[in-house]
Design a protein around this nucleic acid. Sequence first.
RNA 1: UCCUCGAUAGCUCAAUGGUGGAGCAACCGGCUGUUAACCGGUAGGCUGCAGGUUCGAGUCCUGCUCGGGGAGCCA
Length: 463
Amino acid sequence: MEKVDIKEIFRHAPAYLGQPVQVNGWVRTIRTSKAFGFIELNDGTFFANLQVVFGEELANFAQVAKISLSSPITVEGQLVESPGAKQPFELKAEKIEIISFCSPEYPLQKKRHTFEYLRTIAHLRPRTNTFAAVFRVRSVIAYAIHKFFQERGFVYVHTPIITGSDAEGAGEMFRVTTLDLNQLPRDESGRVDFRADFFGKETNLTVSGQLEVESYCLAFNKVYTFGPTFRAENSNTARHAAEFWMIEPEIAFADLADNMKLAEEMLKFIINYVMENAPEEMAFFNQFVDKDLFARLENVVKSDFGHLTYSEAIEILRKSGNKFEYPIEWGRDLQTEHERYLTEQVFKKPLFVTDYPAAIKAFYMRLNDDRQTVAAMDLLVPGIGEIIGGSQREERLDVLEQRMAELGLKQEDYGWYLDLRRYGGTKHAGYGLGFERVIMYLTGMSNIRDVISFPRTVKSAEF
RNA sequence: UCCUCGAUAGCUCAAUGGUGGAGCAACCGGCUGUUAACCGGUAGGCUGCAGGUUCGAGUCCUGCUCGGGGAGCCA
């Protein structure tokens, strides 16, 4: 008998009606009477369950009727139209093989669980509706991102996860070492002697692949990274994790406007792709997780993103008459309350804020002609806040060197990075996209811990 | 790291300073088309940890641990 995925049955039901099929899956729920029962079977290939009907003509009816939730079974039978209102078809079982009995202590029940509880059983939560939807959509978004860039001729670059650069400047780093922490080798001055370490120097987990990917940008023109990133910040929020994934495109012969155009097209492409390729999951999110989800995503796809310079943003905030906790003053960074006001109250759609004061941005961002601001951009979206941060890079060697000197960065630490300006340098730009923040934005899930399979956060690395 | 709220049965929650309960899950039984099925019954607890106040603490006080929400840092 033909072994069929449940997704295949749902997508091509007419071809299977009246046909004998075999399905293999886990019991999501079971309802029984004296002489018959219903099993909702999920085989992991599809969001929805296949209803299996079984009667006492089964040789093992009594056993099947007492089967526990999440037990795996093999069902053979015929696909027939269903008299029930909630499903168009069902599988009339002729034979049910119980592969194993799930222990009755199984912690997932036929009821709503809190996300907090499910986090404590992260190894079982992908069997729930919400997490099955989250992680299938996560996979679809990842594919959409690759598809978007590959179709436009971008080269996917794998930048190192272990970095010897101790000055990437994007955040606190996790140290990588094979030294015996109980017996550290010391040098003449009593400091830890990293010459004895695995790499012969201090190494850490990467906080960004950007500097490295710039070198491939100046060889391949259009490149992107998509990989894990690590930040040892003591951040305790629903939007930060110590281990997360980031996408960092970098384009040559391009300025900040090209950069923003790319970011906007990318985000719209991803939304369209996911709506088309995970419709059941998205409908579930819209119904149970965030009732405004579809309206919001539609608004993003249909509207042109807003554009605003930092200086204009300061003016709008100042004139708003709103009472903010943090002062509005040119030169200070925008706070979350300011960003949310701009994107949620004023623009009500995604919004690029550009040209921030140089003093509050990274050294590699290109200095504008006013000598005060840099060609940086943040993309702010309602509900999430900053989802993308990027800039045009400083390609002028003398300006970059001067800026590094002002910030006290040692040129010898950035020799190869400066070479990129010496040898065939050209204007280029790029941005970093937080993968999990995109997932949150597209699903309505409000905690980053619920869109990562086994999240690593401060004081938490279970599983 | 700061502010704030919380921790009681496997899960979600109740209990005025005076003998800790309910719904769901589990287990046993009933039910001929169910849809988080329904109906009846059984069992289930050192109230997060450590101290303190009190005749008496789930309840009040102190510290700690963990979790939620908000802020900072950022993606």
